[in-house]
């Protein structure tokens, strides 16, 4: 089969992706696991790293925080997406602006701005103290609470945009029909709107979860000493303990889980097409 001529247009992008992403990744895995260390030790290495206390704890923490973030983002994002799907004109533009603009701002800037707000001497604690509502500052920063807030803020646009697309695809006549047939508002939501937006919920939740498990900057800056996620553990192995084979094993693990979840994500979007509700 002759490749389409427009395929050539993709060549620069593919070349760049290959050079700066795939090649280093392959080099890293091959070098650390097969050249620097004895390939016959690979299995022991895998077991040793993945079964280590630190790794197990990081896996649990990562999943737990990702789950908290996914649920929080969903609970915040669903009403926003619903609002957007039912508004036009200035209000629509305003809310889209508020949701999208942070998306284009550096993640480090956004994380530091939350630290300014939540810190021990931060704006929130100061305000509460000036109002004499509290005497000692609340522990708002350097714990799971602050990680979840920071990550939620960063990941919200992904959820809102995914849900918005799903909700825009819902035929308004179906909602009118449900009303005409005597259904109350809550019943229409439960029996019609929610099921019809479900694929959006699943896609959005998967995207947010996938992005969460690889998060580094926000938990590293806003988390406490015990909140170590897998990505942070990898960074420590590379930078501090210089255990590159260990880092490679952990990276490989994280990459496989991510790819697996992406496979699920594509299955979900395929099912959506099969349902004919796109």
């Amino acid at each position: 089969m002759k490749p389409h001529r427009t395929t050539l247009l993709m060549l620069p992008a593919f070349a760049m992706l290959g050079c700066i992403f795939l090649a280093p990744l392959a080099w890293f895995f091959v070098h650390t696991l097969l050249i620097d260390s004895d390939p016959s030790d690979l299995r022991d290495q895998l077991v040793a790293v993945l079964a280590s206390r630190a790794m197990l704890r990081a896996i649990v923490t990562t999943n737990w925080i990702s789950l908290l973030v996914t649920v929080t983002v969903l609970l915040l994002g669903y009403p926003i997406a619903y609002y957007l799907a039912n508004r036009r004109g200035f209000r629509f533009t305003l809310v889209v602006f508020c949701v999208i603009v942070p998306y284009f701002t550096s993640i480090i800037v956004r994380t530091y701005s939350w630290m300014v707000l939540l810190g021990r001497e931060g704006l929130i604690n100061q305000a509460l103290r000036d109002l004499h509502l509290i005497s000692d500052p609340l522990p708002l920063l350097y714990n799971q609470f602050s990680i979840v807030i920071g990550m939620t803020y960063v990941l919200l646009p992904y959820m809102v945009l995914t849900l918005f697309a799903a909700m825009k695809g819902i035929d308004r006549n179906l909602l009118l029909a449900a009303r005409g047939m005597g259904a109350s508002g809550p019943m229409i939501f439960r029996r019609v709107y929610l099921p019809l937006s479900r694929h959006g919920v699943i896609s959005g939740a998967l995207i947010v979860f996938i992005l969460s498990i690889g998060f580094f900057i926000t938990p590293a800056l806003m988390g406490g000493p015990s909140d170590v996620m897998v990505a942070m553990l990898i960074e420590r192995s590379v930078e501090i303990t210089l255990d590159w084979p260990g880092a490679a094993v952990m990276s490989l693990f994280l990459l496989s889980v991510t790819l697996l979840l992406y496979a699920v994500y594509y299955r979900v979007t395929d099912v959506r097409r099969l349902m004919g509700t796109v």
Partner: peptide
């Protein structure tokens, strides 16, 4: 929802799910 009238829509409006 309280009028109790039946309605057939132009594009049927059948719930796909």
């Amino acid at each position: 929802q309280r009028r109790g009238l039946g309605m057939v829509f132009q594009n049927y409006a059948i719930f796909p799910h």
